[in-house]
Design a binder for these strands. Structure first.
Lengths: 196, 196, 196, 196
DNA sequence: AATGAATGAGTGTTCATTCAT
DNA sequence: CATGAATGAACACTCATTCAT
């Protein structure tokens, strides 16, 4: 049969991407086979190549797309907020909520950087640095203004991002706490941690 | 059990373990080949099987050994300290220093849990939970005593551990800050974050 | 039969055939992909099947067509010439000129016989033998008439054909020598070689 | 079973090379699969990679080895012979005998140059040019000395080589003529063809 | 204790071919 | 007529693993 009735190319591409994210989170990029992926989508392994020229490309596509999206979303979330205190609180809210909603992509993006081909890795790292730079800037501004304590904006930023990101290692949608409660715990920890 | 019973470990065994840690950190467990490993040690691939029955066993051995060691070391570091505040500060010191000193093992232990065979994974997760439980207990005690703020000892513990562990993602021995400075930044963040 | 019965060949068919010859000469039959071919023509790979039922058919079609054409052209070139000496000279002229003009087809026909399916290979070999037989006959006639030296008309014919055909391995349209000069060199070699 | 009893690595390498030559001659390099090759040798396909890192390397190895051998053998065959006439006769003898004895390698070397990776192709072409240059030099010397007719030593050399090489397209060990007879026919054709 | 030759299952990838649209 | 989505079989190649030596 040349084509499964009713299938449409663009749909297939989305299905592949979604299935790939799930399988890579579950088994890791290296351990996921294209046959597993194809079976999950209901196509043949070779058909993946109509949409992604290589397994590497698939990973790169997902990760770069994710990083671009999250960076843009962060900037939008911070837009119009001036005071460092409020900006930091907004960042906490945004970051955790995003990492809860897109848990899989975020998990991938932290775990599989090593598996990216050189060029894509550089691109992803640049986007991550841009993301981190936003937080560093907030902390530096707050320290300069005297509202934040702390000796080192950069290390503090890494620490805060590390804390908030770790949520996606254990969060389960049907867990004990609701997202808002999780956010509150972390935001309180962060804000109390940095305030002078 | 982390090692073959009673074996103190021959030289070759230690060399294999050390080389494996380095290569797995660099390339990931799945991507590291036994030929790479053997070449790094200066032996043939087949000879690895004298010491570790399978690639999986090698990973399990390293990870379980690491988890046992770090758990024991934590308990020793906290021994004799009573007050929650002091215990938490001691935990921060210990955790970061350990993660800086054994950066590679820690990185492995967070990244390659998925690659472990079922039994070993359960064992590692149990050890990790025991480790986390120590921190949860400190926070719960402090909250009960009224010295720590915070609504949820468990989530707070995960957050703090996540923050402190993230150091091993970026720490470089010849970096801008010395270990003591890094520890200070994190300890301050944590302590300020939890104190009532 | 070289072509689908009665078809004069549409434009697209001619384009496919021409592009296929070029690509097969460049990469070899096995190494040429239908996607390359389709791209060269400006259509989709699947569309090639409107004109040639299979890749093998395309090769067979080209090669049989070529062999039929060259055999007919040889017979026409020799028509009306009686004396073995003159017939052999005419053959040299014809063969080299044809191999220079249709260098690609000739190159294909010598290189890709192995790639033909059994039936087509037999057909091509039969046509080639018919071609060779013309030369054998000329030599045999000349030897019988005492104008040609030589012990074995068949081997001599193969040797002469091999010599003349080798031109298409190195001939380049803008090379140092013009076709007429190349022809002269070879004809002189052959005629001097066989004359008693 | 880890090893077929009695098998020795060096033997296997020779067996692979020999089987590869046969299969490549029969089906062409592209059409020969490593499974065919492995089966012919009595090993698994993957085992070929102990001896040749890639299919391409196998071809390159065979072709370069052949070209080096034949070039050295030619020079040895011509050593000590001074007069162009005798050198050319010696070349004819050598070339045909060698092409009869090593028919398969020679056939490969003429047919599969396209399949070589770039570097190996350049190497093989350089060796071929060195071989051809020997013949060009003989003809040029003979023309300069006035013993050979002919206008163009290079084209004449190509023609003669083309003639003699074509033997390996049809020669069969149990054919009608013995090697010495085949050699005689060709040598007579060539010598008569070039003598003034 | 170590080697090195070999296995065999599996990998990512290619490609001629088919066919509903 | 042509497309483009899909197939499925095959390919070159890798690698953890085994075991006679």
């Amino acid at each position: 049969m040349a084509r499964t009735k009713g299938s449409v190319g663009t749909d297939t591409e989305r299905l592949i991407r979604a299935a790939a994210i799930g399988l890579m989170v579950e088994h890791g990029y290296e351990a996921m086979t294209l046959r597993q992926l194809a079976e999950a989508v209901g196509i043949q392994a070779g058909s993946v190549y109509r949409y992604f020229g290589a397994k590497e490309k698939l990973l790169a596509d997902i990760m770069i797309g994710h990083m671009e999206t999250v960076l843009a979303a962060l900037r939008e979330a911070l837009a119009g907020i001036e005071a460092p205190v409020e900006r930091l609180a907004a960042f906490c809210d945004f970051h955790i909520r995003y990492h809860i909603e897109k848990q899989a992509e975020v998990f991938l993006a932290t775990m599989e950087i090593r598996s990216l081909p050189e060029t894509a890795r550089a691109e992803v790292l640049a986007l991550r640095q841009a993301y981190e730079a936003e937080v560093v800037a907030i902390l530096a501004a707050g320290m300069a203004a005297g509202v934040f304590a702390g000796r080192d904006a950069r290390v503090s930023a890494y620490a805060i991002i590390g804390m908030l990101t770790s949520v996606c290692q254990w969060y389960r949608p049907n867990g004990r706490l609701k997202p808002d409660e999780i956010i509150a715990v972390h935001r309180d920890l962060v804000m109390a941690g940095v305030m002078r």
